[in-house]
Write a protein that binds this DNA or RNA. Structure first.
Length: 675
DNA sequence: CCACAGGATCTTTTT
DNA sequence: GATCCTGTGG
């Protein structure tokens, strides 16, 4: 098995003497190295699977890795192997060590939306931009392992944010909740000042592998360092040219820091690309050459020269979507390629909508990867609020959502009274209902629906905590659905088509929960925490192998590859993306250093996009694009110039320009007949 | 005191 | 197109 690797890959896979950094260019087979290394550890070196941990950033990457490991390692031997995201390991860690942090085992995990709402109340404003800024600031502080007390506020805004941060922390504690950042931060804090816990985890993980290392933030760096401090055996795999999560606190400096912190660090470069033809690779290399880089590397491949890259200018975004669809359609028939050989990549999620519309009209099957999460849908959040409340009745946000959806005669004012009462009694909203003096603030008439609701939740709760065999999750879920009459609720509030759609989502969620509960032998309440980390509903095996064009954001496309790639909206302002000038603070003062760094990150994003293509790459940009109501004139992205496409042949204008629907169709037919 | 209907306002990227 | 916010009716 190991023999199928090239010399550098092999070296990376079998190096075990100490810390190891693998600098893996795009398409250089880094997943292969990681999976082979895991196999090597288990098959050749006698490591127990349970003592190996591999960390990724996305569930998708984790899932793929699990699959690939299972192909090369015997099932019995790979049992107990941990391959998951940083955050998922964080959940596992915190559940196990909850008591050391004054946290209950079934703490809630708040997503960004929940956190935003909490902050909104504390700031006392509806200004969404301001809330976002504060939320981001707090998140950044957390990712840099800064406690409220560590912060020396330089501006009034920062002082305000610090105040909120303190307040926010206290609120989370009261809710028995943690946010996404805490899933990494709290384990670090605990390991730092609890020797017993620290020791236990250090000895439990005998080998650690980290994927996409360039996307780690300070907190994650520290966690890796702590977890491996005892044996110092780990492999980090990354590519500084593909770092695209600085906005989330990730810092490429972590790669450099590694060389400083570990003087015996073994650095291995993977430079052979197994994915792309020369034209694609050259374009990628040319673009990224405009960025400074930490480690010099030159990608090469042996897949041949390839077709020239095409750049097409479009009149507007409708034309763009339609033309891309038609080109894909034509290529699908001409090249006898499958739909799934094509991808359309874009900067922002909102761009997907118009492409979807065009694809539906053209009858092109597609799947959207990334983008709006299944778990962000209102109906899903509703159901999850119930589950969260059942798992943790101190979760006030979940309580508020559940008790008001569907409406059961509990409104704003009642909740406000209950809230004030709960604050005075220092208890959760849910607990306040059962407080003996609650009738002093809430009239009997308002109290009745509250009590009814709380009794029901308590009943389910009691049974949900029992062992799996006694109380099947299926029974509890079905009972919950029946009690809250959610299907009726949906039909009362939406037209039939929409309601049916939403109800189907709920059924899908239920199916998923039931299946998962059975697979992993878990109780319903144990599953709730895992859901918080999942962005997309994992489809069944058959469904995910369907033949369809992939629509994806550039961010979500990392790690994927496609024979034919279209990147749309390659325009100044969109890629590189520019924030609104008048957002906050003055744009002139917006310091230059920051601007340069932002452009560099956008350039890496462009690089990621280009390197997704195996054989053919097409870039499109629009001369006009609608933004809100105004139609703006646009210019091609600077990155197009940077690719150094001198050949004028590569620059085309929309082949369907100015045509009527009928003419376009005729043109398409012609394209299909004549390659 | 509660619920709903219609209007304005967005849209970077994600665990 | 979807979510928030506001004003009006039950």
């Amino acid at each position: 098995m190991i023999n199928q690797l090239n010399p550098s890959q092999k070296e990376a896979a079998i190096y075990l003497d100490g810390p190891c950094l693998v600098l893996a260019g795009a398409g250089s087979g880094k997943t292969r190295v990681i999976t082979q290394k895991i196999a090597y550890l288990i098959n050749q070196c006698g490591y127990e699977a349970r003592s190996i941990v591999a960390l990724t950033f996305t569930n998708k990457a984790a899932k793929e890795m699990v699959e690939r490991v299972s192909q090369i390692v015997d099932k019995r031997l790979s049992k107990g192997l941990t391959v998951c995201t940083f955050h998922a390991l964080g959940v596992r860690f915190l559940r196990q060590e909850a008591k050391h942090l004054g946290l209950k085992e079934h703490f809630s995990i708040l997503d960004a939306t929940d956190a935003g709402q909490i902050i909104q109340e504390m700031v006392g404003t509806t200004d969404k931009i301001r809330i976002r800024i504060i939320q981001q600031q707090i998140s950044l502080w957390k990712n840099n392992l800064l406690e409220p007390d560590d912060i020396q506020p330089a501006t009034p805004d920062e002082k305000e944010a610090q105040r909120i941060y303190r307040n926010y922390e206290a609120t989370l504690k009261a809710y028995q909740s943690v946010d996404f950042d805490d899933l990494i931060r709290l384990p670090v804090l605990l390991m730092r000042h609890n020797e017993e816990v620290c020791d236990r985890w250090q000895k439990r993980i005998k080998y650690l592998l980290v994927d996409e290392y360039q996307d780690t933030n300070i907190c994650q760096y520290e966690w890796v360092k702590l977890l491996t401090a005892w044996h110092r055996r780990f492999t980090a795999v990354g590519d500084d040219d593909q770092a695209i999560y600085a906005w989330r606190g990730a810092t490429i400096e972590n790669l450099a820091k590694l060389t400083q912190d570990y003087t015996d660090l073994k650095i291995i470069k993977l430079e052979q690309n197994y994915r792309s033809v020369d034209t694609v690779l050259n374009a990628a290399n040319q673009v990224i050459a405009n960025n400074p880089n930490l480690f010099k590397k030159t990608l090469w491949s042996t897949l041949g020269k390839g077709e020239p890259i095409q750049v097409i200018s479009m009149e507007n975004e409708e034309a763009e979507a339609e033309t891309v669809g038609m080109r894909i359609s034509a290529a699908h028939f001409n090249k006898k390629a499958q739909w799934k050989d094509f991808a359309v990549l874009y900067r922002g999620n909102h761009q997907a909508r118009i492409i979807e519309k065009a694809f539906r009209q053209l009858r092109i099957p597609y799947t959207i990867s990334g983008g709006q999460s299944f778990f962000d849908k209102a109906e899903i959040r509703d159901i999850l609020a119930y589950l969260r409340l059942i798992a943790n009745n101190q979760d006030d946000p979940a309580f508020i959502r559940a008790v008001t959806t569907p409406k059961r005669g509990v409104g704003q004012t009642t909740l406000q009274h209950l809230g004030e009462f709960a604050v005075s009694k220092q208890c959760a909203l849910f607990e306040a209902i059962f407080h003996e003096n609650v009738d002093t603030v809430i009239q009997e008439r308002q109290l009745k629906p509250l009590r009814l609701f709380a009794d029901f939740i308590q009943d389910i709760q009691k049974r949900a905590h029992q062992a799996v065999e006694i109380q099947n999750p299926t029974v509890l879920l079905d009972e919950l659905m029946t009690y809250i009459r959610y299907e009726d609720f949906l039909y009362e509030h939406h037209d039939d088509r929409s309601a049916q759609n939403r109800w189907q989502n709920v059924l899908d969620l239920n199916e998923w929960l039931k299946r998962k509960a059975e697979e992993d032998d878990m109780r319903l309440i144990d599953l709730v925490q895992h859901i918080a980390l999942i962005t997309m509903l994992e489809r069944n095996e058959q469904e995910q192998e369907q033949d369809a064009v992939t629509l994806s954001t550039l961010h979500a496309s990392k790690g994927l590859e496609f024979p034919y790639v279209h990147m749309v909206g390659v325009e100044e302002g969109l890629l590189p993306h520019m924030g609104k000038e008048d957002e906050y603070g003055d744009p002139n003062k917006d310091n230059e250093e920051l601007y340069i760094q932002r452009i560099q990150e956008e350039r890496r994003l462009m690089y990621v996009g280009i390197t997704r293509a195996q054989y053919e790459l097409t870039l499109t940009w629009c001369k006009k694009r609608k933004r809100n109501r105004e139609e703006l004139n646009r210019e091609p992205s600077r990155f197009i110039a940077e690719m150094g496409l001198e050949d004028k042949q590569q620059r085309l204008s929309d082949p369907f320009k100015g045509m009527s629907a009928k003419e376009r169709l005729a043109q398409l037919k012609q394209m299909i007949q004549k390659p």
